[in-house]
């Protein structure tokens, strides 16, 4: 029995992923002006935000986020997020850079145009290390940054939370939980009540504007 449940859960989470990506790419239905696209609640401190995060997670929501002006330690566990996969991207890119850098130098100086310099072997491994190293670092750093942009779906100038005027404080000194309407569990009243129950202040619907 449990295996069927697992399968269903897996399919559901895949559907969520696809939904998320479509929304990001702007493929999904556009927000109509006046449509409720989410709920936003303010919390007064990092500690309060962290407690709220755990409760929203336990409520079963998936399309929610906790906004703060700085990263809060322990929030990943409170939200139940899996560790970032960025490290794997960077490792792969670094390996490609390393092998590619060495191969480039071998191709250029030892194979394609054999260049004899001061009697050194054509494939002079030690002399090729510095450039190989630099290319490894370059590939890793570029992947770390652009991989991060990809995982965060940036640049994305349009998002439900930006409909709120109060949300401007999220980059200053305010702490928010937002729950988006595309979530399966989203119900305007019940979601509002949940946020109220867990101590949210200044709760507001995120209403699409023109």
């Amino acid at each position: 029995m449990s295996s069927i449940n697992d399968t269903v859960e897996e399919i559901n989470s895949k559907i969520d992923d696809v939904k998320f990506d479509l929304e990001v790419m702007g493929v999904g239905p556009e927000d109509q002006p006046g449509q409720v696209v989410g709920v936003l609640a303010e919390f007064e401190s990092p500690a309060a935000l962290m407690k709220a995060a755990a409760k929203v997670r336990d409520g079963g929501y998936k399309f929610y986020d906790c906004h703060s002006p700085f990263p809060i330690h322990g929030m990943d566990q409170a939200m139940g997020l899996k560790p970032s996969v960025l490290g794997i991207f960077v490792f792969i890119a670094g390996t490609i850079g390393c092998i590619g850098g060495m191969a480039l130098q071998w191709w250029a100086n030892a194979y394609q145009y054999k260049m004899m310099i001061s009697g050194k072997p054509l494939f002079s491994f030690p002399a090729f290390v510095p450039v190989t190293f630099e290319i490894t670092i370059l590939f890793s750093a570029l992947t770390a940054v652009f991989g991060m942009f990809h995982l965060n779906r940036l640049p994305r100038l349009h998002h439900p939370v930006f409909y709120s005027e109060n949300f401007k404080g999220a980059s200053d000194d305010k702490f928010f939980v937002s729950i988006e309407a595309i979530d399966n569990l989203f119900d305007a009243n019940r979601t509002w009540e949940l946020l109220e129950r867990i101590g949210g202040k200044n709760i507001e619907f995120l209403v699409a504007k023109k």
């Binding site: 995060a53 986020d65 906790c66 906004h67 703060s68 002006p69 990263p71 809060i72 929030m75 990943d76 939200m79 997020l81 942009f149 965060n152 940036l154 640049p155 994305r156 100038l157 349009h158 998002h159 939370v161 930006f162 999220a170 980059s171 937002s178």
Partner: peptide
């Protein structure tokens, strides 16, 4: 680039 300061970011 549309930074939202969400913990997922």
């Amino acid at each position: 680039m549309g930074w939202r300061g969400g913990n997922r970011q």
